[in-house]
Amino acid sequence: MGSEPIICVESLVKEFRRTKQQSGRFSAIRTLLTRERTVSRAVDGISFGIPEGELVGYLGPNGAGKSTTIKILTGILMPTSGTVHVAGIVPWRERKRNAAQIGVVFGQRTQLWWDLPLSDSLELVGRLYEIPPPRFRFNLKLFTELLELGPFLSTPVRQLSLGQRMRGDLAAAMLHSPRILFLDEPTIGLDVVAKERIRSFIYELNKEQGTTVILTTHDLDDVERLCQRVLLITDGSVLFEGDVESLKNMHTRERDLIIRLPPGSESIELANFASARIVDESGDLTRVRFNPQSLPITELVSFLLSKYAIVDFSVKEPELEEVVRNIYAARSL
């Protein structure tokens, strides 16, 4: 992984101006003459850098500015102000050069030809990018194996399942060996098996080929399984930047100790511990929530073992989805 960021964003701002709707008999004439407009700021001074070879989760609620940022990085939109460099290129100024070094997959859209077999679509992608035939054949063979495309290469794209189409889109996005891959909701609507196949491919791509990956998703299982670092944004600004564990530790300090007792055992009492409480009792399982910073787990477990005939116990880390939900809930108060 290189020390210089392959993606560098500084003080990025994107505003959208819309004509204000007016009501009344002469509203159309007034609008034409005065052109009163409203301004909304989708991205508000975002700055970050992504080193080459990193796999980053770019997270935020709907309307936070994620898609707008991605569209600027891919050259689709021009920002209102700020600077952006993607592998040394200003994306909206050199769209063709930028397109040659990035791959893009949008979960709700496809870059494949609807009525053509998947193999023909991939062949057309190869020609559009002017991929040399030896490299095209090598990449097609590699991605066919990694994504298990063989059984449906001759199937028209319109007849593919969502999971099959997504695998085809991933192959199309990577055929020209881009240095950077932008993924927008790549596992949305997929079943468990399809999600796992997509995740394995992304992981392999990042680890084995060193592809830089920016993942925008609402599926936080994707983030926990794949991402080395997360950027959490809201209202167009960066709220958190760091690894997943740091995010959990910063915003959710409590952990759950799950205890299994023999059938018919008396209930656990925790009156001696101000930093621990029972949050659930179901059958022979008891869930104790505690703060490891004020109550070391060794002290809590030692006490419980001395008082109760514990069959088994485990510690459950907070789930990323719960952490992120709590962060946004706290900001909305």
Score class of each variant (00 low, 15 high):
Gly126Tyr: 05
Thr212Met: 08
Pro178Trp: 03
Leu181Ile: 14
Phe136Arg: 10
Ser237Pro: 00
Leu190Trp: 04
Ile214Asn: 14
Trp114Leu: 02
Arg331Ile: 12
Leu232Gln: 04
Asp219Phe: 15
Leu183His: 05
Glu94Cys: 13
Ser47Leu: 14
Thr187Asp: 11
Thr286Pro: 12
Leu181Ser: 05
Asp256Leu: 08
Thr69Ala: 00
Gly264Trp: 09
Phe273His: 12
Glu130Phe: 04
Thr80Asn: 12
Leu183Asn: 10
Ser81Pro: 01
Glu208Phe: 00
Glu224Met: 03
Leu59Gly: 11
Pro156Lys: 07
Val244Tyr: 09
Leu162His: 11
Ser81Trp: 05
Leu116Ala: 13
Ser40Phe: 07
Val279Ser: 05
Leu124Asp: 15
Ile29Tyr: 13
Arg179Pro: 07
Gln228His: 10
Glu52Leu: 11
Ile297Lys: 07
Ala194Arg: 10
Val43Trp: 11
Gln164Met: 04
Ser40Lys: 14
Trp92Gln: 13
Ala64Glu: 13
Arg225Ser: 06
Met1Leu: 07
Leu32Val: 06
Ile89Cys: 06
Gly49Thr: 02
Ser275Pro: 07
Gly49Asn: 10
Gly60Val: 06
Phe201Tyr: 07
Cys8Ala: 12
Glu319Ala: 00
Glu204Gln: 09
Gln101Met: 03
Arg229Ser: 02
Phe16Asn: 03
Cys8Phe: 12
Phe48Lys: 02
Gly60Cys: 05
Thr217Val: 04
Arg37Ala: 03
Leu116Ser: 13
Gln21Gly: 15
Ala329Leu: 15
Asp235Val: 01
Asp256Trp: 05
Ser154Ala: 10
Leu142Trp: 04
Gln164Ile: 01
Thr83Ile: 08
Arg225Asp: 10
Phe138Ala: 15
Glu130Trp: 06
Leu239Thr: 08
Thr286Gly: 01
Val311Tyr: 04
Glu224Cys: 14
Asp256Phe: 03
Thr144Met: 03
Tyr308Pro: 08
Arg199Met: 06
Ala172Asn: 11
Thr212Val: 14
Thr38Leu: 01
Ser23Ile: 00
Thr68Glu: 07
Ala274Cys: 09
Gly163Phe: 01
Trp114Phe: 11
Gln22Trp: 09
Gly189Leu: 13
Thr38Arg: 00
Thr298Ser: 15
Glu241Ala: 08
Glu196Lys: 13
Glu299Val: 00
Gly283Met: 04
Gly24Met: 01
Ile72Tyr: 03
Arg225Pro: 03
Ser314Arg: 11
Val230Met: 08
Ala194Gln: 15
Leu232Val: 00
